[in-house]
Design a protein around this nucleic acid. Structure first.
Length: 268
DNA sequence: ACACTGACCTGCGAGC
DNA sequence: TGCTCGCAGGTCAGTG
């Protein structure tokens, strides 16, 4: 399940591999992956080039010559760069035929991912009404204080809210709250100014460490390898059974419809 | 305006 | 062994 650091890794890897590559044609094997008319999608991308590679939250943003290509990997979306003759996997749903005998293939076992074409001058600051990037200076204690005012959702729900901040998913939300000694079920109305500072700081620290570690997979990248962004920061609490700090049992609780891992002893 | 629920999908592991 | 069932999770439409 790619979150911000994994999406960043995928974007940087693709930039390294296919910058300025021309699309000769697009094959779509599962229509619902494409938002809007798949035929229009295919036509608009024909003879476009991958010029600029950006990320906004968990969205991959490809600036072409005259359009912007947007991709969301959701849970299991992956990109592979393969030679034309490589056999097609049953979970490959979109193939971008590139000049030079290579293909960019979109692979997604659960077909949850989405892609669409938007205008070339698309403004990322207002795109999908996403909140500030967690690594930007806009995401700070004062912002957290202002946003949570009047709300009382659990902290876990707040961190997953893409309008609050864009790019955090289930795994990093658990890790951030563990680092802040805050239980995922704690109401966002009941935290202190110090907690707000901790959330801003630990969010940046954890995501940056994950991006740095993901970067090592870029350097060892070979074209036969999938561009999966599969790297996850080694988890301290998510999917763990025992707390590495106090040795107590890690609890799992359903919050906002998602499993949340926390240490009842270390987190309050 | 905010908050919660279900739909979208497939694979996998638990339980019978 | 073979079946069913529940769970996994990001986003959004629909409902309260």
């Amino acid at each position: 399940m790619p979150e911000l650091p994994e999406v960043e890794t995928v974007v940087r890897t693709l930039e390294h591999e296919i910058c300025d590559a021309e699309i000769l044609g697009v094959s779509v094997y599962w229509q619902r992956i494409i938002e809007g008319d798949a035929e229009v999608f295919q036509k608009r991308l024909c003879h476009e080039h991958f010029r600029k590679f950006e990320r906004r939250g968990k969205y991959l943003i490809f600036r072409m010559d005259t359009v912007t290509l947007i991709v969301h990997l959701r849970m299991e979306g992956k990109f592979y760069i393969l030679p034309d003759e490589a056999p097609k996997d049953r979970h490959t749903h979109v193939i971008f035929q590139l000049a030079g005998g290579r293909q960019l293939r979109y692979h997604d076992t659960r077909k949850f991912g989405r892609m669409c074409i938007l205008p070339i001058d698309l403004d990322l600051s207002t795109f999908k009404e996403l909140g500030p990037e967690p690594l930007s200076s806009d995401f700070n204690a004062a912002y957290i204080h202002a946003y949570r005012k009047g709300r009382k959702v659990p902290l876990k729900t707040l961190l997953l809210d893409q309008h609050f901040t864009a790019g955090i998913g289930n795994i990093y939300a658990d890790e951030i709250l563990y680092a802040c000694h805050l239980r995922p079920g704690r109401s966002c109305a009941r935290i202190t100014r110090k907690d707000e500072e901790n959330i801003a700081r630990e969010t940046k620290r954890i995501l940056q460490a994950a991006i740095a570690a993901g970067g090592t997979t870029i350097r060892s990248y070979t074209s036969s390898l999938g561009v999966t962004g599969r790297f996850q920061l080694s988890c301290q609490v998510h999917t763990k059974k025992i707390c590495g700090v106090c040795g107590n049992e890690i609890k799992i609780k359903y919050i906002g419809g998602r499993s949340s891992y926390y240490c009842p002893h270390c987190q309050r």
